[in-house]
Simulated assay, not measured.
Amino acid sequence: MDYLTHDERDPNPWLALYLDDSIPINSATKRALMRDNSSKSVRYLLPIIEVWSKITMFFIHVFKYFVPRGLNSSRVLHQILAWGLKNFVSPDANLLIFRHFHVGTEILQFIAGNVQGVALAGNPLKPKDFDSIKEDLFLKHDLNLYNFVINLNRQLKEKGLTIRPPEKLDLSMITEDQFDHIVFPNRWTNVLDLRSAIELFTPFYQLFLTANDFVRASNSLQLDETIAIYTSQILGTPAHLGLVNNKHPMVPETTYSAAYRLVLHGLAAETLHEILVKMKLSKQSDGIITPH
């Protein structure tokens, strides 16, 4: 985006948000997100795909009620997702999707590494190509989150511990990856924006997963608040909680809003991760920690 093209009589809203630094976010992510928001796909395809997605999800919901075990195949689902992302999703949207797994993994590793007295064996997910998606990547992402919350709190309760600021903050797992090492396809078919892609893939997610898996995946989005609270207890400050939009996990939302909330989930993870990146860079410049 070129600020020199600014027209005061017709200001570009995405340029305004791109230049604004009030919300902490990785520069490559921000650039990709603003380009994604201003794409023709958002303007012309998203409204149609949203309507199709909701109608399709309704009929799949009815089908699953009568045939709950029908067409359940995570393997087929992830093959469809890998094929769809590679052939129809824009480079910007693919960057945002791939980054999310890396960012989410590092946030969980940060919490696990800074809660004293617990030992958590994680399942890091850092895909490097589309073949990585075929290994049940999206399903494992949701399972990781719930298993992390369960195992963490089980150990805290068994050992009578609470989450508190550690004596020495460990930021060694936080990286500044800009994803310039992955070149995403940019053929004429790679046009779908992030929300259109999610809306398009959500019915397939619902169709090929069990009802429990699909509902759990949808409800996991509201754990953004839970993860943010863990982080605030470690850092000793609640400042970043104001950046969380998916809240109140004990009051689940309908699955029909999952696509939009998934984008908010990605944004929450990116902003929290950027806060940790800036903390690491600040400590490095002060000579408190050495680069990892």
Rank of each mutant, 00 (worst) to 15 (best):
V89M: 14
V215E: 03
L120F: 14
V115S: 13
T162N: 15
P124N: 06
T226I: 03
A217V: 00
F59V: 06
H248L: 10
A197M: 04
W52E: 14
V215R: 14
D286T: 00
T162W: 02
A16N: 10
L71F: 06
F101S: 02
L209V: 00
T226V: 12
V191N: 12
I48C: 09
L95K: 02
F63M: 09
V67D: 14
F179V: 00
R43S: 00
V251C: 04
L207W: 05
L194E: 12
M250K: 15
S132Y: 15
I55V: 06
G117E: 13
V115N: 11
A197L: 10
Q233M: 08
I48K: 14
T271W: 13
F59Y: 15
L15G: 13
Y260L: 07
D136M: 06
L143I: 12
L46R: 08
P166I: 07
T271N: 03
E50T: 11
Y18H: 09
T237K: 11
L45R: 11
S53G: 03
L243S: 05
V115K: 07
Q222K: 09
T290C: 09
G113K: 14
R164V: 03
L262N: 06
H78S: 02
V191G: 05
P124F: 03
N123T: 10
L200H: 09
W83T: 14
T271C: 15
K30A: 03
I275K: 15
S282V: 01
F138H: 10
S220L: 04
K128W: 07
S22M: 00
R195T: 01
L143F: 04
V251Q: 01
E199N: 15
D21N: 02
M279L: 06
L243M: 13
L235Q: 05
D170Q: 10
L4M: 02
W188E: 10
R195F: 08
K278Y: 11
V42W: 09
A217T: 01
D92A: 00
D170L: 07
N212E: 15
L281E: 05
K86Y: 13
F59C: 03
L33F: 13
L267G: 01
L209C: 06
V191M: 09
E176Y: 02
V118L: 15
T162K: 15
K278D: 00
M1K: 04
N245D: 05
Q109T: 01
L85A: 02
P165E: 13
R43A: 06
A258G: 02
L125C: 12
Q206D: 03
F88W: 08
V62C: 07
S39T: 02
Y3T: 01
N186D: 14
K140W: 02
L33K: 06
L145N: 05
G122S: 04
P127G: 01
E270K: 10
D177E: 13
L241R: 12
D10A: 05
L152G: 08
R187Y: 10
N190Q: 09
F184L: 08
F98Q: 12
P238H: 04
T231L: 10
Q178L: 10
D10N: 11
L207D: 00
D7K: 01
K86L: 03
P13D: 06
V277L: 03
S285L: 00
D7C: 01
N87F: 03
